[in-house]
Every structure is written in structure tokens, then in C-alpha cells.
Design a binder for these strands. Structure first.
Lengths: 341, 341
DNA sequence: GTGAAAGCGCTAACAG
DNA sequence: CTGTTAGCGCTTTCAC
């Protein structure tokens, strides 16, 4: 591979001139610039990013740290983030934390050791020690989807509390009074918010909040399946279920089908998040949709703006919370008179 | 961040000794080693990978180049690859090629410029110029899922021709005679193989191959939907459909439902690939399952073995083709007498 | 065993 | 405008 030295040699100039030509063409004579460019593409020269990064103390790569690469949500997010990063001249390095804060911190260390320019992170920790580590990080950080409360960092997501509230309102308006939520692990920001939105809606309607109807599905379809089984075999079973994630909705639906409950005739089901293949699922699920591409683009831009700012830490944290959209499918209906209020 | 110099200073040794201690502890006295280690973790020293890579001419990162990060197949693949790479001490940098060979080649250049240790690639090109570029690449390369015929490179995938054949056999055994395939773009290796497997099965059964029944769904659900619409509104419509990918099966299913065809009563539907959430889809699809985690692990190991080998180019190309597993769901049944043979 | 020194490829003063 | 020079942090001969 040709180095800057080779280019200098064949162009008959000093290496610093070659460097300058690429960094700031206006500061060399047009003639020199032409000779350098010619030599460069004659040799197929590409600057060695490793050397550049070592010198600058920072690489042109951004890191992305998510809980589950293989989930449909993060799959779409990664795709859009990578695209935007590439447009702005950055490569993307990604790792899967399995939702484990320890792992996350270790990976954060590895990434910063690589001198990445910035990091997009979906933080899963909640301890104050964890928060300190995040805040202490010198590398620009942007939180996406999840958030650590109190960390003064950029944050981009859709309004997940509102999402839960919209769905709960919808179910209440249909006449439901016993509405269960299959939640995520409540130490997680999004899971807690979804519970809050649900409670807000109930309280606004003057309905009691019954903790029995909040069961933890851990954001996993299998857990959700099991919890739905338990929920629906109780005497005081709910007439409607709100699943806090798409995968959990699928688990719940499977359980309902196996128990012989018709949806929405016997039980209504609503969910948060977009399932791309939702069209073929019967019944079509009522859900709130997030604009993932928008989240990706905004968060990538926040990050790179900060990276390219002259004083990244002086920038006050920005925050974008997108309004989700309610899609009413055929999985929700008024409660049947037998179970109804 | 502490550098090797700081460690040397506080340990009271030369920097070369520090370097040696980490690279080859046996070659320094036990006492020195201890002092170095103590100094190192007192300062929280981590070697700068950029400097190491610059010096060695190679980084401890592997690249992954796939056609669509957000697809369920690659999502699961990436997750498992990243895990395996991390276990072996490598970070993963990924990019989405959108299935465009040009883009792929450009990204390949960018990645090799980064001095990545190796590259996992799902090659989408077919021109000989493209093949030359792949073969000329100095960086260890492993092809996964897709393959470029004739390139002497490692290759890992499941036997996709056999997969198509198994499904076609199954449909034939049920009594179907008019079996359509919704194919991928046939210039792609996997798509072509799936057509081959289908033809082999028909020929082995002494059935004619009818090109009318091969329609291109471009590996996209929307195209598949449209093609199914076209297919099923023809006079000589098929009694069974084989969708060459999971997303295409969903598109086909949606079309069938909208046209009012019952599956499997009116039309049988079978597909290749595993859909994690397939359990909630009615009917349960008959399909062949690939062991994605296995593909990921083997390909990562092939790549890293080659990376760590002393003479990577001397290693003869290895190849693993995994046997897929047939799962018989409820989407396939004998043809009804009205449409049947 | 340990240290001095060269150099990986590049950038950024600083001279001229 | 262009060249010289001093590193960025590390590895790796080669002496001692």
C-alpha cells in the first residue's frame, strides 16, 4: 500500500506538502496540488487511518452499544445509523451488551481505548456507580432508546410514556376496566416509563391501579408467554392486555391462542413498537409505531455534531423525544358483556 | 490516559521492558514483571490499540459486510459473530452494502485501509472484475451465506440447494404437480441454488419444469406480495408455492389472505429460513431451518484461524455447508381435488 | 534480563 | 508557498 512518502516522492514534494494538500488544498499552489493529486491516484494512495488517528488521538469511527443487535428494533436502528455515519465519513463499530451493565462498561472501555470519535449507547445500568462511569466518559456520548436518569447527555427516543398512555386510553375508551400490562424489567428506563404512562391513563380516567395486573415479561417473548398463561388462568383475569414490546405481544398472542381465547372477542391485545411483518399476523395488532429511521438519524447527527464541535463538553445536552403514532388494528374491541365492566 | 511511558517510569524500567512484559512475561525476571504489572494497574494502563496496530500493520478488528443488517438472518448472525470475535479478542466493525456490489467493493477498500485483521463477507457481485477484486484482497476473507463461484476463499453456509430440494420433495410427496417458486434475484448465489434445488426435485420425480412458475420476488416481501397476486390470479395457478425466503413467505401469505385463498386448503406454502416469531403466524409455516449460530461460529473461527495463521494465503480454502432441517407446519397439505393434478 | 534506538504513517508547528 | 522536524504510542531488533 502506497504511503504518503511514496506520493511525495513521485510528486517531487515533501510529505508535509502532500498532507497539506489533502487537508487544505487552498494553502498550496494550484500546480503543486495537481501534481500531488495525480501522483496520489496514480499510486492509488489512501491515507492510513491508523496513523491519522494515532496522531490526532481520535479515529473516524463511532461505536454503537446496544442490548440486542438481533432485535428488529436495533436492526433497523443500526442500519440507519451506519448509513448516516458513512455519509458523514465515519465507520461504525458495534457490540452487543446483552443488556448487562457490567458488560456495557467493559465494552465502553474497549471502545474508548480504540479512540472512537463518539458512542451511541442504549444504557441498561441504574446504579449510581454506573452513572458516574457514564458521566466521566471523555468521549462524546449519546443515549438512544434507553436513558440513564440524571446523566447530562444527549438523548434521542420516541416518547414511550406517551405510547403506553395512548394505548391505555384507547383500551379505556373501548370500555375496558381490567387492563393488564406485561412490562419490561422495571429498572430499565423504557419499561418504567411504560408503566407510568399506563398508570397516568388509568388515573386520568378515575380508574384504580391494580398492581396485580402488572406482570414482568422481561422484554422476552417466552416470559411474556408464561406471564400471559398465568394472567389468563386467574379468576379475575383481565379483559385487555398491553404488551410493552413487540416480541412480548407475540408471546402473549401465542398464549392466548393456546388457551383458546379469541382476540379481540375474549381479550384485547395492544402493543408498543413496530413489527415490520405485522401485516401477516392475525389479528392485526393495535399498536404504537416509532419512527426508527428518524431516531437513528437524529441520534447520529447529535453524536457527530458533538464530535465535530470544537468544545464538545460545552455543548448543553440536547434531547429529542418523538411523538409515536397510534395504529388501530383488529386486536382490540370492546369487552364482551360476560367479562366486561 | 496512561501510556507505556508512564508505566515504565513508575515501574522504573525501560518502555521496551514494559512491552516485553505484556508480550512475553517469561522473558523478563519475575520481579520485574511484578513491578510492571503493579504499575500498570495502578495507572489503569491499557495499551493503545491504534499504536499497536500501526506498528504491526494490522488491527484487532474484523469487518463484516452484509447485504442487510436489519434482516432477521443477519441480525442473528452478527450477534453470534460479534460474540465469538470478542471471545477471541477482536472487535467487530460492520457495514451494510444494500446488496450493491459497487458499494461492497468501496466498503472493502475502506475496511482494508483500516487494516482490519479479516473480513466476513456476503458477496453480492457476479462480474469477473468483481471476482478479481475479491481474490486480489490481501486481507483474509471468508464468504458467508452468499458465495462468489470460483473465488478460492473459505465459505460457510447452510446447504441452500438441499433446502429447496427438501421443500419441493415434500410438496411433491403431498401430491402437488403445479408448484411455483418465488425466487430471489437469480444472479445471487443463494437464489440460483434454490432454483436448482427445486428443479432437481422436480426432475427426480419426473415432473416437467415450467418456467412460468418461477417468479422473481427479489428477496423482498413487497415484491413477493405482488408476484403472488399475479400468480394466483392466473388461470393455471399453482397449488403450492415455495417462497425462497422468510420475508417473501410473509408477503405471499398476505397476498393469499387478501385474495381469500385459505392456506393450506386452497394453496400450500413452504419457505426457506427461520422466522423467530413464526410460532404466532397462522398457519404455522412449513419450512427449512438453518442453524445460524453455527454458521456464525464456524465462519468467525475460519476467519480468525486464518488471521492468526503464520501464512494465511498458504491455507487451502475450507468450506462448511450445514445440513438444514425440515420443519413440517400446517401450511402444507395435499392439493384439493378441484385444483389438484 | 534489560535498555537504547529506529520506525510504523501521519500531522502540525515552525522556519525559510 | 514549501520543507524540516518532532512527535503520537507502541514493537522489535540489537547491544550491553
Amino acid at each position: 500500500m502506497a504511503t504518503i512518502k511514496d506520493v511525495a516522492q513521485t510528486a517531487g514534494v515533501a510529505i508535509s506538502t502532500v498532507s497539506l494538500t489533502f487537508a487544505n488544498p487552498d494553502r498550496v499552489s494550484p500546480d503543486t496540488a495537481r501534481r500531488v493529486w495525480k501522483a496520489a491516484d496514480l499510486l492509488g494512495y489512501r491515507p492510513n487511518p491508523l496513523a491519522q488517528s494515532l496522531k490526532r488521538g481520535r479515529s473516524r469511527m463511532i461505536g454503537v452499544l446496544v442490548g440486542d443487535i438481533s432485535s428488529p428494533f436495533f436492526g433497523r436502528l443500526l442500519k440507519a445509523v451506519e448509513r448516516r455515519a458513512l455519509e458523514r465519513g465515519y465507520l461504525m463499530i458495534v457490540a452487543d451488551t446483552d443488556g448487562d451493565p457490567e458488560r456495557e462498561l467493559e465494552l465502553l472501555d474497549q471502545f474508548t481505548a480504540q479512540r472512537i470519535a463518539g458512542l451511541l449507547i442504549s444504557p441498561h445500568g441504574s446504579s449510581t456507580a454506573y452513572g458516574r462511569r457514564l458521566s466521566a466518559c471523555k468521549t462524546p456520548l449519546v443515549m438512544v432508546d434507553h436513558r440513564f436518569r440524571g446523566a447530562p447527555l444527549d438523548y434521542v427516543a420516541s416518547d414511550t410514556r406517551m405510547a403506553a398512555r395512548m394505548l391505555t386510553d384507547h383500551l379505556i375508551n373501548l370500555g375496558h376496566r381490567r387492563i393488564a400490562q406485561i412490562t419490561g424489567p422495571v429498572q430499565l428506563y423504557t419499561a418504567a416509563e411504560r408503566v407510568e404512562g399506563y398508570k397516568e391513563a388509568l388515573q386520568a380516567a378515575g380508574l384504580p391501579v391494580n398492581d396485580d395486573l402488572l406482570v414482568d415479561g422481561r422484554y422476552r417473548d417466552a416470559e411474556s408467554y408464561a406471564q400471559t398463561m398465568r394472567l389468563m388462568t386467574r379468576a379475575d383475569r383481565p379483559t385487555a392486555i398491553l404488551a410493552a414490546s413487540n416480541m412480548m405481544a407475540l408471546g402473549a398472542l401465542q398464549a392466548l391462542q393456546e388457551l383458546g381465547y379469541a382476540c379481540p372477542e375474549d381479550v384485547s391485545l395492544a402493543t408498543i413498537d413496530d413489527i415490520p411483518w405485522s401485516a401477516v399476523i392475525k389479528p392485526k395488532l393495535t399498536m404504537v409505531l416509532q419512527d426508527i429511521e428518524q431516531i437513528a438519524q437524529v441520534s447520529a447527527d447529535y453524536l457527530l455534531d458533538r464530535v465535530e464541535s470544537t468544545s464538545p463538553d460545552k455543548l448543553t445536552p440536547r434531547e429529542t423525544v418523538l411523538i409515536p403514532r397510534l395504529f388501530i388494528g383488529s386486536s382490540t374491541a370492546p369487552p364482551s358483556s360476560i367479562n366486561g365492566a
